[in-house]
Simulated assay, not measured.
Amino acid sequence: MINSIKLKRLTLASIFLALCVVGANIKIMGSVAFDSAPAFLGAVMLGPLYGAFLGFFGHMVSAALAGFPLTLPIHLIIGFFMGICMAVFGWIRLKFGTSRWGTVIISDIVGYAINVPLEMLFLYPLMKAAILAFFVPLTIATILNIIVCEGVYAFLPRAIKSESYLRGH
Rank of each mutant, 00 (worst) to 15 (best):
A64D: 09
I147N: 11
M86Y: 05
N3Y: 08
S4I: 13
N25C: 12
S162L: 12
G23C: 02
H59I: 08
F16Y: 15
H59Y: 09
K128N: 15
I147Q: 13
F155C: 13
M60V: 08
K95F: 04
V148I: 15
A66L: 04
M120D: 01
A39G: 08
I15E: 03
F40W: 04
E150T: 14
P137H: 05
A63W: 04
R9E: 02
A24S: 13
S99C: 00
P69K: 01
F135N: 05
L76A: 14
A133R: 01
F16N: 10
L132V: 15
I146A: 12
M45N: 01
P38G: 09
L138I: 06
V22C: 08
N3L: 09
M86S: 12
I77W: 08
L49W: 14
I160E: 12
A37E: 04
T98I: 08
S107Q: 05
F89R: 06
L12E: 04
F96K: 13
A141G: 11
R167S: 12
L7K: 12
E150F: 03
G47I: 00
S4T: 14
M120P: 00
P117K: 09
L156I: 07
V88P: 11
E163D: 15
F56S: 07
A13T: 10
A66M: 04
I106W: 01
T142L: 04
M82C: 09
L17S: 14
M60G: 01
P38F: 09
I109W: 06
L132Q: 05
V104T: 07
H75T: 03
A159L: 08
F89C: 06
L121E: 02
P117Q: 09
E163K: 12
I114A: 07
W91A: 15
P157V: 07
I109F: 13
F53P: 03
K27P: 00
L76F: 13
L70D: 04
I5M: 08
I92K: 09
L121F: 14
V88T: 14
K8I: 02
L123R: 04
M60H: 01
F34L: 14
G97K: 07
I78S: 01
S162F: 01
M45I: 06
W91S: 15
F80S: 13
V22Q: 07
T103W: 00
V148M: 13
G83Y: 04
M29E: 05
Y50S: 06
R167T: 05
P137V: 10
I2P: 01
V104K: 02
L126M: 14
V104C: 00
L166W: 01
I143W: 11
A39I: 05
P69A: 01
L41P: 06
A52S: 13
T98G: 11
L123C: 03
L70S: 10
E119Q: 11
L121K: 03
P125C: 03
A64R: 10
G55K: 00
G42I: 03
P157G: 08
F122D: 05
K95A: 11
R167M: 09
P157S: 09
P117R: 08
A133P: 00
M127N: 07
P48H: 11
H169Y: 11
A63G: 11
